[in-house]
Simulated scan of single mutants.
Amino acid sequence: MPHPPDSAELPPLCAAPRPSLKAPSFRLLPGACDTHAHVISADHIRYPFVADRSYTPAPAPEQAYLQMLHAMGMQRGVLVQPSIYGTDNRYMLEVLERHQACLRGVAVVDDQVSDAVLEHMHHCGVRGVRINVLFRGGVDLDLMERLAARVAEFGWHVQFLIDVRHLETLQARMARLPCPVVIDHLGHFPARLGVREPGFALLRRNVAERGWWVKLSGIYRLSDAPPDYADADALAQALIEAAPERMVWGSDWPHVALQSTPDTGALLNRLPLWAPGEHQRKQILVDNPAALYDFR
């Protein structure tokens, strides 16, 4: 009989999200949307984690997520399938189906997914698929073209969690995709490298010239300067300057794969530093998410 793996071999446990958050420091308009969060069930029997994963998260279930969204003053949200579930999107889909007016989703699928499953996902509110090369359990770049061809028929996008320092090697392939491209977490590279880092400069060009979208999210994953993460400010400002109509904001709640989690409200309160005008903040929080995620 096989023995269970040694505890030292188990994926590391993550800290839970903070039980409270700072209130918004600015006025949020109706329809404000958090475009990047995850839900994680406490029922590991019904919704098991994949064995080959990079971390083991604390529960972050549906009601906790909705409470966080309400505390931030937001009416809309986008759930992203976390890598710990692999291509088993059931929990996210069940949450989406219960809140179709205010929630949308980004799924993780492989190229064996059936049209019927994609149609069901679309009915639930899925509007994109994610390719994740930074955490085990995700779908990798080999499937980029095949997945894009499948989801383009539904009007979906492909969302990439990549380090943009490698963007030059992927540029030609990504530029040919038949659907919108969304880049996670400002390109997920060390903020200390600054706006002149070649991969980031290429990202800015794609945003300005090809209409790529960027999530202004996860700054604490790039930053060497907690708790304010001010070294990421210039990156966000440069992207907004390039194309404010292609920017969306995301909390990245419940902040997985960390031993200490940030204050979600404090992350939102960086936004007025990046976009001082209410018109730009309305674009980023209301208008752009409505367009990208098909909110009506």
Rank of each mutant, 00 (worst) to 15 (best):
Y55L: 08
T56Y: 02
P59R: 03
P61W: 00
P61D: 03
Y65G: 15
L66R: 09
Q67N: 15
Q67S: 13
H70I: 06
A71S: 15
M72W: 08
M72R: 14
G73V: 01
G73Y: 01
R76L: 15
G77K: 05
P82Q: 04
P82W: 01
S83C: 09
I84H: 00
I84S: 01
D88Y: 02
D88V: 08
D88S: 11
Y91M: 10
A101K: 14
C102D: 12
R104E: 11
R104Y: 04
R104F: 06
R104C: 07
V106M: 06
A107D: 13
V108G: 09
V108T: 11
V108K: 02
D111V: 12
Q112D: 12
A116W: 06
V117P: 13
L118V: 01
L118K: 00
M121W: 03
H123I: 10
C124Q: 09
C124M: 10
G125M: 04
G125C: 04
V126I: 13
V126K: 03
R127V: 14
G128Q: 03
G128C: 12
N132D: 13
L134A: 15
R136V: 03
G137C: 04
V139G: 03
V139W: 00
D140E: 15
L141S: 05
D142R: 10
R146S: 12
L147G: 06
L147F: 02
L147V: 04
A148D: 12
A148V: 02
A148W: 01
R150A: 13
A152C: 05
A152E: 14
E153G: 13
W156G: 09
W156F: 04
W156R: 03
V158A: 10
V158G: 08
Q159I: 02
F160W: 08
F160T: 06
L161F: 01
L161S: 05
R165I: 05
R165K: 11
L167G: 11
E168W: 02
E168R: 06
L170P: 05
